[in-house]
Simulated assay, not measured.
Amino acid sequence: MTGHAKAGRPNQFLRNLNSKIASIPMILTAVVIFLGGTIWTVVYSFTNSKLLPRLSFVGLDQYHRLWAAPRWVMSIENLAIYGILSIIFSLVIGFVLAALMDQKIRFENTFRTIFLYPFALSFIVTGLVWQWLLNPEFGIQSVVRSLGWTTFAFDPLYTPSIVIYGVLIAALWQGTGLVMCLMLAGLRGIDEDIWKAARVDGIPMWKTYLFVVIPMMRPVFITTLVIIASGIVKVYDLVVAQTSGGPGIASEVPAKYVYDYMFQAQNLGQGFAASTMMLVTVAIVVIPWAYLEFGGGRKRV
């Protein structure tokens, strides 16, 4: 009977055959364009390519020049500050807003739309809007001074030491609404019986969130973290719209460094090296996520 059962089972390879055939173009696109382009970039990062790519290998010279460049070091420092603070504030603010929205408040749909609306705008529009708001001549500083506080100063985009925080404000304004929606979806997935049991046991609400709800929302937090981190690594247009990397090089980021060297300075080798370092950063984010989502899941099963 076992032999007949095995003979009656369809071949695993033939299951969903139409779907597999339909996915062949996308698989080929991913392998040829994405994987092939990545390998091509890494290989040419070891060359002395200038205006056009050429296989003139120089070893690790491009990477030595990269890490010796003050502009690149500044961009990495800015990315670290921007990234760490963006992750912390996005998760905290997004979760708090989601917890408030989960209280079955009136006009919930209206508030949800208001909070999510900035995410529908492009980074260029967001950057220009906040460039105006943070302009000391007619922005927040000018408005507050017109109300009588003549010594009030708030011009982060014009102060090199804090300009990256001005960029961070604009990014949080745009992206926090999406984080709130993701967190709200996770909160709505929590069984109502858990809340009832916590109330019966007299557990304070903040403890329920901290020790019960948040651990149960681990997959939501991991997914949200990956989305935020991927946006942090490739941040470019927001910086260009707000500061163009200035004052000086105070708000440089890696993506802008790559663009400038590849398309303006006509130094492809240096741009490829910087791109490869960005690839390493993405791998640092994606590999732990993949392990937690897939490797850890198999072990639990």
Rank of each mutant, 00 (worst) to 15 (best):
H64F: 13
R145F: 13
A185H: 11
C181W: 09
F138I: 14
T159I: 14
V96C: 13
T159E: 15
L147I: 12
F89E: 02
V129A: 05
L55S: 12
V58G: 01
I105D: 00
N78L: 02
R65A: 06
N78E: 13
V92A: 15
I76A: 01
E137P: 05
I93R: 05
L91V: 09
A99H: 09
L60G: 08
V129W: 00
R145H: 13
C181V: 15
L168G: 05
S122L: 08
V125P: 05
L85T: 06
L79R: 04
F89C: 07
Y117P: 04
M183E: 03
A197G: 09
C181K: 10
P160M: 01
V167E: 03
G139P: 00
R65S: 08
V92K: 09
I162T: 11
D155P: 05
I169K: 03
G59S: 13
V125M: 08
Y165P: 03
T150A: 09
M101P: 00
N135A: 04
G59I: 14
E192W: 14
S75F: 12
P53I: 11
S75W: 13
A171Y: 06
L182Q: 08
E108C: 01
R188Q: 15
N135Y: 07
N135H: 14
L187C: 01
Q141K: 11
A69H: 07
F111W: 14
A171N: 11
G148Y: 00
I194C: 08
V144F: 02
M180K: 03
F123M: 11
L66W: 08
L157F: 08
V179C: 05
K196P: 03
L182F: 15
A80S: 04
S122D: 14
S75E: 11
V143F: 14
M180R: 04
G175F: 01
D193Q: 15
K196C: 08
L172E: 10
G83P: 01
L168C: 02
F154W: 15
N135V: 02
W130Q: 06
G139R: 10
N78T: 07
I162S: 00
F138P: 03
Y63P: 07
Q62T: 14
H64V: 13
R112I: 02
L187A: 06
G148L: 10
I76S: 00
T110G: 13
Q174S: 03
Q103L: 14
F152D: 09
L85F: 14
L128G: 09
S146M: 12
A185Q: 13
W132C: 00
L178G: 04
S86C: 13
W72K: 10
V92M: 07
Q62F: 09
L55A: 15
L134V: 05
I194V: 15
S122N: 12
Q103Y: 09
F57P: 01
F107C: 12
T159R: 11
P136G: 06
V143R: 12
Q141L: 09
A80P: 00
H64Q: 12
Q131T: 04
W130G: 06
A120T: 13
A98M: 05
F123Y: 12
S56A: 12
S161D: 15
L100W: 15
S146V: 02
L60W: 07
G148V: 10
F107K: 11
T110V: 15
M180N: 01
H64D: 07
S75K: 06
V143S: 04
L147R: 04
F119Y: 13
G148H: 07
N78C: 02
I169C: 10
A99E: 10
W72N: 06
I164Q: 10
M183F: 07
G189H: 11
S86N: 14
V129D: 00
